[in-house]
Design a protein around this nucleic acid. Structure first.
Lengths: 209, 209
DNA sequence: ACCTGAACACCGTTCAAGT
DNA sequence: ACCTGAACACCGTTCAAGT
């Protein structure tokens, strides 16, 4: 696992010095501005505060998602690694819960991020698509073990988990009173995943009789 | 209940004829445009297509939410009335489920609507605030009966339901593959409300031992 | 009393001109 | 190879000038 990382954000090597400096300045400023304004932050504002021309920002990050991906890569890598670690835990259900809690934290790092993440399901060209696919697959791996042990109902997949976690994150950012309920709603959703919750028929279609 | 309704949208009476006509034209066009573009539709576009000046739109609907409220009033009234009817059903749990299903339909009438509705929790000045408060209260009334009968776990309130329903609606509008899961996710959330799902401690805070 | 649209202050995105 | 910022096509919101 000791690969050749030199920087936390992996700015493309072999660039001109000014290009590399701009790349890093933009990324640093973007972290601040996105933290303030959310994923829909003004790109103009980022370029302005980074002291670069607007075209320079677009050259380094052709789309908003490309910029977001650079901001989030570290967190995604960490989450993927944690999933591998947790996959060896004795208690599969607990491992899944813990990882999903981490995913919630990750997906609420910035306001608007749950929306940006779910949008990747419909846009395979987004630079975030691959990372989010990895999250769904990591979720699926932990899920499978928990289901095998009978901790989680079987009619659920990784995309369900990804959607539900982002839904909880989204709700909690819509209004302060809802932010206070984030943990509770997370717990509610986790309860819904247990086999004990699975009444009626399987996938939610209630029998009429 | 036979009040003096003359129009489905209640345009303020006693207006000048041109004002009343503009009000109605704007509302009709807005329904189309919001249907196409969602709640974040261009107000400029609405005014343009309605053939009125931009200032005229603002005069009749000072805020975006004022326009949305006018578009949604009928549906809200209907939902409130349905809640009253369902409150007399024998099966309290079934009554709640049925009403929440209707609420889901209502809150997904337009793309972006779940977000607009939850935002009213933080903005008491929004014209949508009162209507959404009414929805939470209607949910609370049906909920109370279902809880009294033991159909629903007791650690839930009307705001939880309102948040969860809008969360499901929001998720389903984020990407086509998620739209296909709307019913399933709705069922999942409903399952989470049942007492059988309530394990661990009450409000989601897992005991450490 | 109401309507109109220009004016202002913002966007995202592209691209010709520079170094 | 990279940077810059003007240019274009949009926004939401306000408000002076009209009828």
């Amino acid at each position: 696992m000791a690969d050749s990382h030199t920087s936390p954000v992996d700015p493309p090597r072999g660039q001109r010095a000014d290009a590399q400096r701009n790349y890093e300045r933009i990324l640093a400023v973007a972290r601040t501005v996105v933290d303030e304004q959310g994923t829909q932050a003004s790109l103009r504002d980022i370029a302005r505060r980074a002291g670069v021309g607007l075209g320079t920002l677009y050259r380094h990050f052709p789309t908003r998602d490309a910029l977001l991906e650079a901001l989030l890569r570290q967190g995604f890598d960490r989450l993927a690694a944690d999933a591998d670690t947790l996959a060896h835990r004795r208690d599969a259900g607990e491992a899944l819960t813990e990882w999903l809690r981490d995913l919630t934290r990750g997906s609420t790092a910035f306001r608007g991020l749950p929306a940006s993440m779910l949008a990747t399901l419909a846009d395979a060209e987004s630079p975030l698509h691959t990372s989010c696919l990895a999250m769904r697959e990591a979720a699926a791996r932990l899920l499978e073990r928990a289901q095998a042990v009978g901790d989680i109902r079987p009619d659920i997949d990784g995309t369900d988990l990804f959607a539900l976690i982002n839904a909880v994150g989204w709700v909690s950012e819509q209004a302060p009173p809802l932010a206070d309920r984030r943990e509770r709603l997370f717990g509610l959703v986790m309860d819904a995943l247990k086999p004990s919750a699975q009444v009626r028929s399987g996938p939610g279609v209630a029998p009429s009789g």
